[in-house]
Design a protein around this nucleic acid. Structure first.
Lengths: 113, 113
DNA sequence: TTGACATATGCCTATAAAGGAATACGATAC
DNA sequence: GTATCGTATTCCTTTATAGGCATATGTCAA
C-alpha cells in the first residue's frame, strides 16, 4: 500500500512544509494565488496544487473576487491536530521536570562529596 | 520530486495513523514490540518498521531489556509541532468568537422585528 | 548446543506525491 | 470580439511509501 493521501486529513496535509508556510501566510490575512506564489518564491501552478490539497481537507476556503480568488484560512480544522498533541503536553512537562530533578539530584550528590 | 520522507521530521512521521496510535500507547508506559503489535492488532514487522521511522525522527527511544526491546516516548520531539500549531490558536478563537458574535447579532436583529 | 522466542530486515507490489513545463479555462478591459 | 491577466489542470518523471510474507539476527533457557 502507498502512503495515505495528503488530502486524507489535516495531519497529512500539513506534513508538507510549503503548505505550512501557506497556512502561516493566510493566518495574517486573505491572499490571492499569485500573491502567495510571490511571497513563497515558487511557481503559481505549485501554489494552486497545494491550495487544492488544503481546500480538500477544509483548511482553507476560497472567495471569488473578480478574476482573483481569495484564499482564507479555516483555522478550526487545525484544532483536531492541536487537540491530539495536547494529550502529550503532560508528557514533555514530565520529562522536562524529570531532567530537572535528575540534574538537581546530581548537584546534591556532588555537594555531599 | 516525490513527497518528503516520513523520516524527515515529526510532521511527516505523525502523518500516519498507526504511528500516532503507537505514540499514544507509549505515552502511557514503555512497551515492547510484540506488546504494541498485539494492542494495535497488526503484524510485528509493521510495528518494527513504524518504530524505525519514529526512532529516526527521535520520537521514541529504545532500551535493551534481555531479548526484548523497550520503546519509550520522547515527547519533547512533538513540541515543535505543538508550537507551530499554537501560533494558530488565536485564529480559531477569533473565528469561534466571530461565529458567536454573528449569532448574537442575528438574535438581536430577530428580537427587534 | 540446540531450540524457542523477540525483533529487525529484505523483497515485492500498488499507489501516489511533488516539481517542471505546457496549456486549458475564466473573467476583465479595450 | 480579442488580447490579457489570474488561476486551475494535465502530463511526465522521480522517488518512496505501507503492507504482506519470508527470513535474517540476536538472546535466553534447557
Amino acid at each position: 500500500m502507498a502512503r495515505s493521501a495528503t488530502t486524507s486529513d489535516a495531519f497529512n496535509a500539513i506534513a508538507e512544509g510549503r503548505r505550512r508556510e501557506i497556512l502561516g501566510l493566510l493566518a495574517l490575512r486573505e491572499r490571492s494565488v499569485n500573491d502567495l506564489a510571490e511571497s513563497l518564491g515558487i511557481a503559481q501552478p505549485q501554489v494552486s496544487k497545494h491550495l487544492r490539497v488544503l481546500r480538500e481537507v477544509g483548511l482553507v476556503s476560497v472567495r471569488d473576487d473578480g478574476r482573483f480568488r481569495c484564499y482564507r484560512l479555516n483555522a478550526e480544522r487545525l484544532k483536531p491536530v492541536y487537540d491530539w498533541l495536547q494529550g502529550f503536553e503532560r508528557c514533555w512537562d514530565h520529562q522536562l521536570s524529570g531532567i530537572k530533578a535528575r540534574a538537581e539530584a546530581k548537584a546534591k550528590a556532588a555537594r555531599k562529596r
